[in-house]
Write a protein that binds this DNA or RNA. Structure first.
Lengths: 152, 152
DNA sequence: TTTCATGTAACTTTAAATAGTGCGTGATGA
DNA sequence: TCATCACGCACTATTTAAAGTTACATGAAA
C-alpha cells in the first residue's frame, strides 16, 4: 500500500498560500512541496469546486484562498478532496454469503466506523486559522537570525 | 493503495478451525477462503509463533487452535500478524524541516494516534469465543433445511 | 499576439499488499 | 525403507492506488 498523503499535502499547500498574500502559481507551490505542478492543480481542484480557493489564469494568475481561514476546518478539506479512505484495512469480502465472514465483519465494522467517526470529529475541530497560528508560533520560536521558512 | 485484509482473513481462518474440531490442512483452509495454501501458512505463521495455533507436518497433520478461544482477543491476533498499519493516510514527510509541515503534522498526528488507540481498544474487547458464538447464532437463525455453511 | 497560467486527459512510474511457484524438511504409514 | 503428505521458506509475479509526467487546449494579461 502506498500511503495516501493528499490531506497532509493539501493542508501544507493551503498554509503556504495563506502565508504568501498574493496569488501563487502551481509551479511555485510545486517547488515548495517538491512535487509536480499538475499534482498541485489536481489536489486543489476539489477545493476550488468547493469554494475554498480561487484560481486565475494568465499573467499574475495563480491560486488564492477564497475564505476566512477560521471558516475552513480540516474536515472541510478532507471532504473537498473526495473523502479518501481513512482505514488501511477492510473486510476480505463485502456482502459475504459465508456466515463466518459475516460474524467477523460484524465484529470489525463498528470498530472501524467508530474510529473513522472519531477521526472526522477531530478534523472538524481544527480550523486552518489554528494551523496558521501554530505555524506562526513555530516561526517565532526559531533562532532570530533565521529570516525565512524556505525549503531545502 | 491496496487494502489490507489480513486481520479479517486470519479471523476467518481461525473461526473455521474452531468449527472443525480436527487438524485442518492449509489446503482445506485455502479452499474455504478461496485463496492459496501458502497464503494460509503465511497468515498463520505469526499466530503459531505467538502460540495461538499449532501446526503439524505429515499425514494427519495440519492446523489446530492451541488455546481457549475465550483467551484470544482480536487484538492478540492483530499483534500476532505483525501489527499492520491501521490508517490509510500518513504525513507527506516524517521529521520535516519545513515549519508549515510541522504544524500540519502536529495537528494530524494526535488525531490518528487517538483513532488507532480506539481501534485497538475495540479489538482487545472482543474474544474469538464471542465471534464463534455470534457465528453459531447466525447458523441457528438460518432456514432449517440448510445443513452446512460451506462456500460456493 | 505573445506569454503566462490554469484545466484536463492520458499515460507512466512507484510502493505495498496479495498471490503464486518451487523446493526443502520432517512426519506418517504401508 | 520409501512413497506420500503437509508445512516452511525463499523467491517471483500480479494487482491496486497514489504519485508523477507529458501533452495540449483554454483563457487572461501585457
Amino acid at each position: 500500500m502506498k500511503r495516501d498523503s493528499r490531506l497532509s499535502g493539501v493542508l501544507h499547500v493551503l498554509l503556504h498560500m495563506a502565508e504568501h498574500r498574493a496569488p501563487m502559481t502551481s509551479e511555485q507551490l510545486a517547488k515548495a512541496m517538491q512535487t509536480n505542478p499538475v499534482v498541485i492543480r489536481r489536489i486543489l481542484g476539489g477545493l476550488r469546486d468547493a469554494g475554498f480557493v480561487h484560481s486565475e489564469k494568465g499573467h499574475g494568475g495563480g491560486w488564492t484562498i477564497a475564505r476566512d481561514l477560521a471558516a475552513i476546518t480540516m474536515r472541510d478539506v478532507y471532504d473537498a478532496i473526495g473523502r479518501p479512505k481513512l482505514m488501511a484495512m477492510g473486510n476480505r469480502t463485502e456482502a459475504p454469503g459465508c456466515l463466518v465472514e459475516q460474524a467477523v465483519n460484524a465484529a470489525l465494522d463498528p470498530a472501524f466506523r467508530d474510529a473513522e467517526a472519531l477521526l472526522l470529529a477531530r478534523f472538524a475541530a481544527v480550523t486552518l486559522a489554528e494551523l496558521a497560528a501554530d505555524f506562526q508560533a513555530r516561526m517565532a520560536a526559531r533562532p532570530p537570525h533565521i529570516k525565512d521558512h524556505h525549503h531545502g
